[in-house]
C-alpha cells in the first residue's frame, strides 16, 4: 500500500518544516505550499489524501481553499484539517460549515496532530 500523501499549507516556514519532518518520520509523503495559489496548483497537479490547511494563509483565505476542495466533486474526497490560531467556537463552527473534516487550534502537540491525521486517514496506530 502506497504511503498517503499530505499537503501542508502554511505561510510560516517553521511550521512547514516541523510538519514535514514529523509526518515524514511517520512514513507519509509530505508536500508543502506557502500560499493559497501554490496550494491549489499543487492539488491540481497531484491530489493529496489530506490537506493540513492554515486558515490565515497568504494569497487566499484558508476557507476559500477548503471551499475549492469540498465543492469540487472530483476533489471532495480529499480530507481537510484546518489549522488555526483562531480558537473561538464560531471560527471552528465556520471551518466545519465550510466542509473541513477536522479543526486543530494552535498550539497543538505532536500527539494531537498524529491522532487527528490517523483518524482522518483511517489508519491504525503505529501503522504508517
Amino acid at each position: 500500500m502506497a504511503a498517503n500523501t499530505i499537503l501542508v499549507v502554511d505561510d510560516e516556514p517553521g511550521i512547514r518544516l516541523y510538519l514535514k519532518r514529523l509526518l515524514g518520520t511517520d512514513g507519509f509523503t509530505v508536500q508543502t505550499a506557502a500560499d493559497g495559489d501554490e496550494a491549489l496548483a499543487s492539488i491540481e497537479a497531484a491530489p493529496p489524501d489530506l490537506v493540513l490547511l492554515d486558515v490565515m494563509v497568504g494569497g487566499r483565505d484558508g476557507y476559500e481553499i477548503c471551499e475549492a476542495i469540498k465543492r469540487d466533486p472530483e476533489k471532495r474526497a480529499i480530507k481537510v484539517c484546518m489549522l488555526s490560531a483562531k480558537s473561538r467556537a464560531i471560527e471552528i463552527e465556520k471551518g466545519m460549515a465550510m466542509g473541513a473534516d477536522a479543526y486543530l487550534t494552535k498550539p497543538f502537540s505532536m500527539d494531537e496532530l498524529r491522532a487527528t491525521v490517523r483518524d482522518l486517514l483511517g489508519r491504525g496506530k503505529g501503522e504508517p
Partner: peptide, 20 residues
C-alpha cells in the same frame, strides 16, 4: 458582535448565509 458569517449549502440545491 464577536461573530462571523459564512455561506453553506443547505437542503436540496439550496444555500444559506448564516450569521450567528
Amino acid at each position: 458582535h464577536k461573530t462571523d458569517l459564512w455561506c453553506e449549502p443547505a437542503g436540496d440545491g439550496g444555500a444559506r448565509l448564516r450569521l450567528p
